[in-house]
Design a protein around this nucleic acid. Structure first.
Ligand SMILES: [Zn+2]
Length: 359
DNA sequence: TTCATTTGACCTAA
DNA sequence: TTAGGTCAAATGAA
């Protein structure tokens, strides 16, 4: 039991850190991509902080019995609070947003109108530990699942648990990448208006339950079997129109790999006793393999296919810039920077959101 | 019980 | 019509 749970915690911890790294990577990309909005970056920052929080909690959890939770939590709160105040990098933030504003000025009008419903995509990978869907600090309720044409795996639809209780209209879609099953493309739509609490502690492990679940249903959507069906499918009409933007994004310099890597490995000795270096390293290398091949060269076009968000495109032609693989924002808790009307939501509790985007 | 997921039916835009 | 998105009844978990 102890060893099992411990290893699970370790895995989760590593996974969380890796995820934070990935998100930071995406943030860097979005920084060099002039088209990305400040909201996007803010959203990424939020996610990174969440990863930090969870990692800290996890660490504290495994490190000491129980009482330390409070400590970790307080620390976490402090940190998040600091970042939330926008004080540390307030100048930077304002500056960037301003610059962004200028850059996007041309299309800003159209976007302003549409920006009401934020819709952001991030890619998250779970290769390592963590089996299930990654927690992002909010509670979601699944309300649908659809097989997508040309996609290997079904797309899941979630909405905020507090939709009815707090009029929170945030939703998200989760689509696992057909090329790299370890990567999930998560599309967030809408802003959370719920007053949900802090980061939730990851659920405890229990192999028994897993076995039961497995027994119930063998393969939900496993990467192996479904291949045949897809292979036989003749429709390869997939258009790669997004290539331009994607390349722009990808071409941006990101060379974090070996450097930061070494830093982590060297500096943090505490990690080594926790898990095997082999696993750690292999996971890491595997993970890093996709986004950045080696050390010096950035150019690699990651295998990630980004045609994902095609659905959003139709709304407005100009959207293409934002969508791609970057992400957008969703001002979660802090910074009510958005000028968009919360009033509408608050005003009309009965207002149904049948076709909100069109209007 | 309440709450969540599953899943086929249903709806709507293209 | 199709494909993507949503609803809701049935089912399951706690
Ligand atoms: Zn919410």
């Amino acid at each position: 039991m102890d060893t099992a749970s411990k290893s699970w915690e370790q895995k989760s911890l590593v996974g969380e850190i890796i995820q934070g790294m990935e998100l930071a990577q995406q943030l860097r990309l979005s920084l060099s991509a002039a088209s990305t909005s400040s909201e996007t970056r803010e959203f990424l920052v939020q996610r990174i902080l969440t990863s930090y929080e969870k990692a800290l909690l996890l660490l504290q959890l495994s490190g000491t019995p129980q009482t330390s939770h409070v400590d970790a939590k307080s620390i976490v709160l402090q940190e998040s609070r600091m970042s939330a105040n926008t004080s540390p990098c307030g100048d930077d933030y304002n500056h960037r947003s301003f610059k962004d504003h200028q850059d996007l000025h041309e299309i800003s009008k159209k976007r302003k109108i549409m920006a009401k419903w934020t819709d952001h995509v991030i890619r998250v990978s779970s290769e390592n530990g963590i089996e299930g869907p990654h927690e992002d600090g909010h509670s979601w309720r699944k309300y649908g699942q659809k097989d997508i044409l040309g996609a290997k795996y079904p797309r899941s639809y979630y909405r905020c648990t507090f939709r009815n209780t707090q009029n929170c209209w945030a939703t998200k879609q989760v689509q696992r990448s057909d090329e790299d099953p370890t990567i999930f493309e998560i599309t967030y739509k809408g802003k959370h208006t719920c007053s949900h609490g802090s980061t939730s502690v990851p659920p405890p492990p229990s192999p028994e339950q897993q076995e039961q679940k497995r027994h119930k249903r063998e393969n939900i959507s496993e990467p192996q079997q479904s291949q045949v069906n897809q292979m036989s499918f003749p429709t390869n009409l997939r258009v790669d129109t997004e290539n331009l933007e994607d390349r722009e994004m990808m071409a941006s310099p990101f060379a974090f790999t070996s450097t930061s890597f070494g830093c982590m490995m060297n500096g943090d000795d505490f990690l080594s006793p926790m898990f095997d270096n082999e696993n750690f390293f292999s996971n890491f290398s595997q993970h890093l393999l996709s986004p950045a091949t080696g050390e010096s060269n950035y150019h690699l076009a990651p295998p990630s296919q980004m045609r994902n968000i095609a659905a959003n495109g139709q709304l407005s032609e100009s959207d293409h810039t934002e969508i791609i693989s970057a992400t957008n924002s969703s001002t979660n808790s802090p910074i009510p920077d958005m000028d968009f009307p919360l009033d509408l939501v608050e005003f009309d509790p009965n207002f149904q959101f049948d076709t909100p985007e069109l209007f």
